[in-house]
Amino acid sequence: MLEVTDLRVKYDTIRVIHGVSLNVREGELVALIGANGAGKSTILKTLSGLLKPESGEILFNGQPIGGLACHKIVQQGIVQVPEGRQIFSKMTIKENLRLGAFLEVSRKRWEQNLERVFTLFPILKERYHQVAGTMSGGEQQMLAIGRALLSNPRLLLLDEPSMGLSPLMTEQVFDVLRTLKQEGITMLLVEQNAYDALEISDRTYILETGTITLEGDSRRLINDPGVKQAYLGGV
């Protein structure tokens, strides 16, 4: 579904992604893990069109999308839940969700998608008319995911959805991701929380300073001594 080949991305003069290749197949949940500053967010932003690739190829269902304007990429069904939630803090939950369904394609399915989001996150229904900026961090994360689901994603990009959340809240977010996976939504998940990410995903890429250093089946990586040492806090 998504095929990235030899992607390079730079900010002004500093290159931070040095030839990354990765792919996500239909229905898969793929994790991308790595330390702070490895370039995870940069990759997701490039996939979404917020950043332009310096070189390399990005194919989505066989079509090249690298360098397209953001709205064109969203139109094709690549939807991102950005790092730090990025909700519309001065607007209500309702308006945030409506913005998720801004495009024609998703507006048509507003009713049924909203129903589904309310089932996943009952809190959003309760707080429907509350100003989003006044919600707790965890609630805002749910809003960010809910908003993305209203965009009718074919591929969902999640940038550290557990960031800043309590263990309980993190558990809840991962439960939702499991549910979405069962529903067959294709996802690329960026996480610092390596253990949870490895556990939930089918395959994992490990990114170190802009290069993929390890990739493979998550079941296998979770038992890999090297990975244990570097990312799972020892044995």
Binding site: L50, V79, K90, M91, L99, S151
Partner: peptide, 23 residues
């Protein structure tokens, strides 16, 4: 209106607006 909502969204958070598919 829809245009107005897009305007408010841009005013609130430009990058998030782009991720919503707003041109």
């Amino acid at each position: 209106t829809r245009v107005g909502m897009a305007m408010r969204a841009c005013s609130d958070n430009m990058d998030a607006s782009r991720l919503m598919g707003i041109n």
